[in-house]
Design a protein around this nucleic acid. Sequence first.
DNA 1: TAGATATTTAGACATTTATCTAAATTTCTA
DNA 2: TAGAAATTTAGATAAATGTCTAAATATCTA
Lengths: 90, 90
Amino acid sequence: MSINEAFKALSDPTRRQILTLLKEDELTAGEIASHFDIQKPSVSHHLKILKHASLIDDERRGQHIYYSLNTTVFHELMSWCFTFTTKEGK
Amino acid sequence: MSINEAFKALSDPTRRQILTLLKEDELTAGEIASHFDIQKPSVSHHLKILKHASLIDDERRGQHIYYSLNTTVFHELMSWCFTFTTKEGK
DNA sequence: TAGATATTTAGACATTTATCTAAATTTCTA
DNA sequence: TAGAAATTTAGATAAATGTCTAAATATCTA
């Protein structure tokens, strides 16, 4: 929701790597987990935090839950950063 | 140095507020501390983390140490975010 | 409906982090 | 050069965080 949740979510390297995976295509929780050396409940926890920060969306289709990027907050983060790159950037 | 350090630095609200203060003008450590309810050693700790992430520069002038924004990493962060906002954004 | 598969929730544990107080360092000035 | 002012460093502590295993939930299929 807030930019605070977004930055907290992005402060973990595993979560940023999950986002990078989702740049290519939507993936199921299991497919995401298969890319990491940590256990599935840990990945699930990361997905929950990313979801809470509105950085990803999820959608259940049958047995699987598909995760995909939500680009809205990335735009907001760019705007936030931009205000630091120019004088008079109030 | 790395984008990892930058995101970890930005994950704390106090540190983001320090950066916001520095948008206006450079400030001494003491002036920065006066804007917060936390003790000076805590502010000094935050400044150290921001410095380590190359988000700020410091310069001693006599008794005071002046802190100012370093915009380089903000540009890098914008680029990083941008890759998530477009398809084919590899 | 019973069992298999996909995923999350719950609870424990070790590490990291933000804060504090006290002490050390650096620089200025009387 | 002694003392004051600005800031950091050191060490302690409580809270937050990432990970794990075990159990629960949801869905599909034979």
